[in-house]
Amino acid sequence: MLCDSCGAEVEEDFTFCPHCGHKIGELERGRVAIFPTREQLFPHWVWLLGFALLIGCILMSVLGVGMAGVYGGLKERAVLARQQAEEHYNRGLAHLEEGDYNLAEAEFREALRLAPNYWEAADKLREVRAQATAMATPSPSPTVPLEVDSQSAAIYRQAQELYSRQNWIETALTLEQLRDLDPYYERENVTEMLFSSYYNMALDLVDKDRLEEALRSFDKALEVKPGDPEALVQRELVSTYLTGLGYWEADWVRAIESFLAIYRIDPEYKDVKQRLYEAYLNHGDLYASEEAWCLAEERYDQAAALDSNDDIIAKRDDAAYRCQIAVAPTPTIIAAVTPTATIAAAAAVTATVTPTVSIAAVGKIAFAAYDAGEGVYTIYMV
């Protein structure tokens, strides 16, 4: 065995180590097994941390359920508001048919209050105001111009407030009402505000993918300021985008033409880059299904110019390889005997004679045959 003190080899019979004098087995008898306490294994901060994590998980769960409830409530509220707006809109239509323009206007305004983007209600409200203005008969009283001016000023201030809040629909409706009442009141400012309202309204509708409504709003803006370059460009972009959507999956050539025209004007317009890429890809797939590999290669190459991912590169390379095979020329050998001259016979001959004629042409053989019916010789060269 080994000495506990110096580690030297000691025989079993020795009580003391002959090397250092240490008593054999003394350390073993003095050793005490020490086990860690509960506090050492799990300090207080570990318990506190675990408890805090548990409370945090519970709070997050409760918060998640609460947020889901709030979102559901807001969504349900929006649906309910839309339904109420439609009810007021239908009532307004009924009053409009009865010729009660005041009640119709009130119903349409309430519909817009509940659903600010209710475009149909905005159109009807504009129509009601125009009809009410056309039917109004001015009073001969000398105080009317002052009253009209005061009313115009109030409407103008209301329009300015709505414009500052970027409530484009209400601003446009209010300014239209002002122009119907007094076309010359703050004419330049009213024109600029009205154009901006329709223009910004159209841009908002484009962002919301309500392109047909956006097109109508751009038309309204151009009615206020005909020929405005920015409005013309934006209207053309919307119109061309709608055209491309109309040809989608029906005519890839026309769809590509539409989205390519937009991409050349504004590459960042909506999702036109992705649309153009998908149109090239789908058209290439169509050509590939018809084994028109060269045309497919061209479309895949155009798609790769927009997004050079691995899939489109593989399709393009495969189509290019198949295109080369398809257009490779096949050698053909054509053997033919061509008559080169006709010699008229000077005298009638009753038998066919095939004399050999020597012609000074290197690498060719000439022979003649007599046609008894025609009375001529025909010379052949091979």
Results as ranks from 00 to 15, higher is better:
Leu2Asp: 15
Cys3Phe: 03
Ser5Thr: 09
Glu9Arg: 13
Phe14Met: 14
Thr15Cys: 10
Phe16Trp: 04
Pro18Lys: 01
His22Thr: 09
Leu27Arg: 07
Val32Glu: 09
Trp45Arg: 03
Trp45Phe: 11
Leu48Trp: 06
Leu48His: 09
Leu48Phe: 06
Gly50Glu: 08
Leu59Asn: 08
Met60Tyr: 15
Met60Lys: 12
Ser61Asp: 15
Ser61Lys: 11
Val62Asp: 13
Val70Trp: 12
Gly72Arg: 13
Lys75Cys: 11
Glu76Tyr: 14
Val79Ser: 15
Gln84His: 08
Gln84Trp: 08
Glu86Thr: 05
Arg91Val: 07
Gly92His: 00
His95Ser: 07
Leu96Lys: 03
Gly99Ala: 03
Ala115His: 05
Ala115Pro: 00
Ala115Met: 10
Pro116Lys: 01
Tyr118Glu: 00
Glu127Lys: 15
Arg129Cys: 04
Ala136Met: 10
Pro138Ala: 02
Ser139Leu: 04
Ser141Ile: 05
Pro142Leu: 03
Leu146His: 10
Val148Met: 05
Asp149Cys: 13
Asp149Met: 14
Ser152Thr: 03
Ala154Ile: 04
Arg157His: 14
Gln160Trp: 00
Leu162Phe: 09
Trp168His: 01
Trp168Arg: 00
Ile169Cys: 06
Ile169Arg: 04
Thr171Asp: 01
Thr171Ala: 01
Leu173Cys: 13
Glu176Arg: 12
Glu176Leu: 08
Gln177Arg: 09
Gln177Asp: 09
Arg179His: 12
Asp182Gly: 04
Tyr184Leu: 11
Tyr185Thr: 03
Glu186Gln: 05
Glu186Thr: 06
Arg187His: 10
Arg187Phe: 14
Glu192Ala: 13
Glu192Ser: 12
Ser196Thr: 15
Tyr199Asp: 01
Val206Arg: 03
Ala214Gly: 01
Ser217Gly: 05
Ser217Glu: 02
Asp219Ser: 12
Glu230Asp: 12
Glu230Ser: 11
Leu232Met: 12
Leu232Thr: 13
Val233Gln: 12
Ser239Glu: 11
Thr240Ser: 02
Thr243Trp: 05
Gly244Asp: 01
Leu245Asn: 08
Glu249Asn: 11
Trp252Asp: 00
Ala255Asn: 02
Ile256Leu: 04
Ser258Gln: 03
Leu260Glu: 15
Tyr263Ala: 01
Ile265Ala: 10
Asp266Ser: 07
Pro267Gly: 05
Pro267Met: 02
Asp271Gly: 06
Gln274Val: 12
Ala279Cys: 04
Gly284Ser: 01
Glu291Gly: 07
Ala292His: 08
Glu298Cys: 05
Glu298Ile: 11
Asn309Pro: 02
Asp310His: 15
Ile312Asn: 00
Ile312Ala: 01
Ala314Pro: 06
Arg316Ala: 06
Asp318Met: 13
Ala319Leu: 02
Ala320Gly: 09
Ala328Gly: 08
Pro329Thr: 02
Pro329His: 03
Thr330His: 09
Pro331Met: 03
Ile334Leu: 07
Ala335Gln: 11
Val337Gly: 10
Thr338Gly: 09
Ala341Arg: 11
Thr342Phe: 13
Ile343Ala: 07
Ala347Arg: 14
Thr356Met: 07
Ser358Lys: 13
Val362Phe: 15
Lys364Ser: 15
Phe367Ile: 09
Val376Trp: 11
Val376Asn: 07
Val382Tyr: 05
